[in-house]
């Protein structure tokens, strides 16, 4: 079967079922809209940052007095090096920067092997059929903090950390979650819900660096393998319904009260294998609903260094 562009799917499904197609993007229902501005720092001062966006535009943003920046650790915005890839959370129509993440990366995968070394160690991860393998460095200074939340640095166990990308190499800095105690092939089956169809699905929304910096979208675990060309799809810890690439999720950040319509653009085969909870505001139900692109995550009010927010997608 010829595999067509999934962009048309939502419009075609809407036409067949007689509904109005949804427009992706933030829903302006509560508070001021947040904007994610991404690109490379051309120049930065304590009050102004100039960014070259992926499409070649130059964005000049005022740095708010309360703004903070992160590059492996919290730093003053003016200390960020030129040439860094940044994601900026901006307010006031996208003109005022209030949070800047520089060279941030998220390392989510299955441990394949861990190098031996007295100080820094390298770890090879399998990040799913679409993302392949990647090698990350576990710096000696961060290994204690990482191993408190990831006690099993052993092949077959999941790993999820936030780090920085320096000279093309990813360095893990912070654990993004507590490591699941099971191997990645042993995802516990969730008890069935006897109450019938769920009208709301709550869980955790995380982010992933598998997207382009300025891309808006989500990776969703419960896709049919035949529709998504992903043999490892269809595993979920949150009892999610089947959707398709091109479907629209109306994702709500329960912590900030922000809602956004996000298209499903890729398979979240690893997200479905985490049965963790987010503690951003209260304790979320178990399981990851979706992995968002960094821009979508930021526009929903998420903090990239925290790594998750309590999310809800509704079915009615």
């Amino acid at each position: 079967m010829l595999y067509r562009s999934v962009d048309r799917r939502h419009a075609l499904a809407a036409a067949a079922l007689g509904r109005n197609p949804a427009t992706p993007g933030p829903v302006a229902d509560e508070g001021e809209l947040l904007h994610a501005v991404t690109g490379e720092i051309l120049d930065i001062s304590p009050h102004l940052i100039i960014i070259e966006t992926p499409d070649g535009r130059h964005e000049r943003l005022v740095i708010a007095p309360w703004a903070t920046a992160w590059r492996g650790e919290t730093v003053a915005p003016a200390d960020l090096p030129r040439g860094s890839q940044v994601i900026v959370r901006a307010v006031q129509g996208g003109r005022v920067a209030e949070r800047i993440w520089a060279d941030i990366t998220r390392i989510t995968g299955v441990i394949q092997n861990v190098g031996k070394g007295a100080r820094d160690r390298t770890m090879e991860l399998y990040c799913g059929p679409h993302r392949g393998r990647r090698t990350v460095v576990i710096p000696y200074g961060a290994s204690g903090r990482l191993q408190v939340r990831h006690p099993k640095f052993e092949p077959g166990y999941l790993f999820d950390a936030i780090g920085v990308r320096e000279d093309g190499v990813s360095h893990a800095r912070l654990p993004a979650t507590s490591q699941p105690p099971y191997r990645w092939t042993s995802v516990p089956e969730q008890p069935p819900s006897y109450g019938g169809a769920q009208s709301r699905i709550s869980g955790t929304a995380t982010w992933s660096d598998a997207f382009d910096l300025d891309e808006r979208g989500a990776a969703y675990p419960m896709l049919e393998s035949s529709d998504s060309e992903c043999d490892e799809a269809g595993v979920s810890c949150a009892r999610l319904p089947y959707l398709a690439l091109g479907s629209m999720l109306e994702m709500r950040n329960v912590c900030t009260g922000r809602t956004s319509i996000v298209p499903i653009v890729t398979c979240g085969c690893l997200a479905g294998r985490f049965c963790d909870r987010c503690l951003e505001c209260g304790t979320s139900p178990r399981g990851r609903i979706a992995e968002l692109s960094p821009s979508s995550f930021v526009e929903l009010g998420g903090d990239l260094t925290t790594g998750c927010f309590n999310a809800r997608v509704g079915l009615g």
Partner: peptide, 10 residues
């Protein structure tokens, strides 16, 4: 093209 959403296959 063929895809599935909830209880529908397109």
């Amino acid at each position: 093209d063929s895809w599935r959403e909830l209880c529908w296959r397109f």
